[in-house]
Simulated scan of single mutants.
Amino acid sequence: MSSIKRVVLVGANGVVGAPVLQELLKNNYDVTVFTRPSSTHKFPSNVQVLNVDYEDVAGLTKALQNQDALISTIGFGGAPLQKNLVDAAIAAGVKRFLPSEYGCDTENEKVKVLPIFPPKLEVVAYLEEKTKGTTTSYTCVMTNAFLDWGLVNFGLLLDLPAKKIQRWDGGDAPVTANSVDFIARGIVSVLQHLEETKNRAVRLNDAVVTQNQLLAYAKKYAGEDGWEVVEVNGEAMEKEAYANLKTTPEDPNGYLLHFIKRAIYGAEFGGNFEHNNDNEVLGLKQKTDAEVEQLVKGLVK
């Protein structure tokens, strides 16, 4: 039986945070959500909501008293603030800290050197150092691409609503993609498998797909006509991203998704978790191709 009862969730109304909140409540955890004072988001009545200042370590420490776990789903821009959460969690005696990973495999050496990932790497290194000799441990949850979300947002896998796809290197690379509800179940399962997931990364593997496979499903249910297919060379896009970062660093539109997609699809970037995942440890089962097809069918409008 897990010793985790009381959980603090940061970023509870985000892409990952919202389904995590529902999964925590489904599993009868006592949930507290941290929000900024300016937040007007409404949460269920059985969720305690605390307005916090992420720059105030003493205040965060007080808010984390008697809490068992902290799950951070904070966005890219807020990643550095997690160091204050780490300090506060250790001071308050929080047992398990899950930093905001939920993306590409940042233990892969090729991923590490891409310039958008250092904020995440710094948080993990900080966790490793600061939790030594304490009662606080950590788990980093890695997912590679988002599956359902990535089919309808930013053309991460493809853009179903607009019938567009930016096809990377021919579209036949098998990559791991996780639906957001699967990610939520994996995160909550970490809390139920503390010893097996202690002080390490875990990898979730909901499905292994190719862009061409997803495009075929999309055409089957959304129709063959009207698709815009843009062929992309991964190495060329990586070079373009570096150039854009150098000339216009203030504009992430010129490089952020380029680097993310390079890490998702590039064979040497480790984005296929099929033979390197923790599904069995966490009690999770990978989708079949038929189940992936049904997911795509359900997203077609």
Rank of each mutant, 00 (worst) to 15 (best):
G103V: 00
Q82G: 07
A91N: 07
S72L: 02
G59R: 11
G75C: 12
D87H: 01
P99Q: 11
I116T: 14
G103P: 07
K120E: 07
G93L: 03
E107W: 12
P119Y: 06
E122S: 14
E129S: 05
A125L: 07
Q82K: 02
L64Y: 05
L121I: 08
P80L: 10
R96W: 03
D56Y: 06
A58L: 10
E129A: 05
F76Q: 09
A58S: 15
A58N: 10
N108R: 11
P80Y: 03
K83F: 02
I90W: 01
L98H: 11
T131K: 04
K130W: 06
V86G: 03
N84K: 03
A63N: 10
N108H: 08
A79Q: 10
V113S: 15
D68S: 09
R96Y: 03
D68E: 05
P99Y: 08
A92D: 03
E109A: 14
S72V: 01
I74H: 05
P118G: 15
Y102W: 10
A91H: 05
T106D: 13
E101I: 05
C104F: 09
G75E: 11
D56S: 14
I90V: 00
G75P: 09
A88P: 05
V57T: 14
E122C: 09
A92F: 04
D68Q: 07
L60P: 07
K110G: 12
F76V: 11
I71S: 12
I71T: 14
Q67K: 13
D87K: 03
C104A: 15
R96C: 01
K110S: 12
V113W: 08
G77C: 00
K120R: 13
L70N: 08
G75K: 10
N108E: 10
S100Y: 11
K112P: 05
P115E: 01
G77K: 00
L81S: 15
V94F: 05
N66Y: 05
G103M: 01
G103I: 01
V123T: 15
E122D: 12
L121W: 03
L70P: 07
P115K: 05
N66L: 02
V111C: 13
A79V: 06
G77A: 01
Q82N: 00
L85V: 03
G78H: 01
A79R: 06
N66S: 09
P115A: 04
N108K: 08
F97W: 02
Q65A: 13
I71H: 11
K110H: 13
F117E: 15
L98A: 13
E122P: 14
E107H: 09
E122R: 06
P115F: 04
V113L: 13
Q67L: 05
G103T: 01
P118L: 12
E128Q: 15
D87L: 00
K83W: 01
K130L: 01
Y126R: 10
E122Q: 08
G75Q: 10
Q65K: 11
F97M: 09
Q67R: 13
A92E: 07
A69G: 06
